[in-house]
């Protein structure tokens, strides 16, 4: 009997994406340990990694890293397929859509901070919409919008600045 082995071909692309996704997952898990005043208000540090990947390797890589972070991060925290997972997934998809637009803006005028702020607002927008449609079928959830908006603004700017700084140091 011959030993059968299944070998998966790993491309350099795969390794690069995996490396970045690992960094994003580590940040997401570390962040889950932080206390939050309101579910949904958190820094979203993993998005710094997504922004850097977007800038250096394009939207496709950023989408891989972002979605791997959502799936693997939720598995590690024990949230996989729980409501929080779907909220995170919706947020990630919405912010990836925003990033697809942001990356097309002229680089001379718009930097990582623009991308970060747009993504942060798309993130909470998508989450609020899902929460309204599915989890809390009442317009009352929109009363939280100003709070989420404020946190998206603050953390969007901070994450964008950090990403811009890290990108700057590389150049």
């Amino acid at each position: 009997m011959t030993a059968s082995t299944i070998e998966l071909a790993v491309t350099p692309d795969d390794r690069r994406i995996a490396r970045h996704a690992a960094a994003a997952i580590a940040l997401a898990v570390a962040e889950a340990a932080l206390p939050s005043p309101l579910p949904g208000v958190k820094p979203g540090l993993a998005n710094i990694v997504v922004l850097i990947v977007l800038w250096r390797h394009g939207w496709r890589d950023a989408a891989w890293v972002s979605l791997l972070r959502v799936v693997a991060g939720s598995l590690l925290i024990g949230q996989f397929l729980a409501p929080g997972f779907f909220l995170a997934l919706t947020g990630a998809l919405a912010s990836l859509a925003a990033l697809a637009l942001a990356v097309r803006l002229p680089r001379r005028w718009f930097g990582a901070v623009t991308a970060s702020v747009l993504a942060a607002f798309a993130h909470i927008g998508g989450q609020l919409l899902l929460a309204r449609l599915w989890l809390v079928p009442h317009d009352g959830v929109f009363l939280l919008a100003p709070v989420f908006g404020l946190s998206a603004l603050v953390f969007g700017i901070v994450n964008g600045l950090v990403a811009a700084k890290l990108l700057n140091e590389d150049d």
């Binding site: 718009f110 901070v113 623009t114 702020v117 747009l118 908006g149 700017i157 600045l161």
Partner: peptide
Amino acid sequence: LLRPGDGFVVLVAALAVGVS
């Protein structure tokens, strides 16, 4: 690190939050 458009986007976002 801010580019000109960044300031504009931040301003618009802050305004939207303030109005909300």
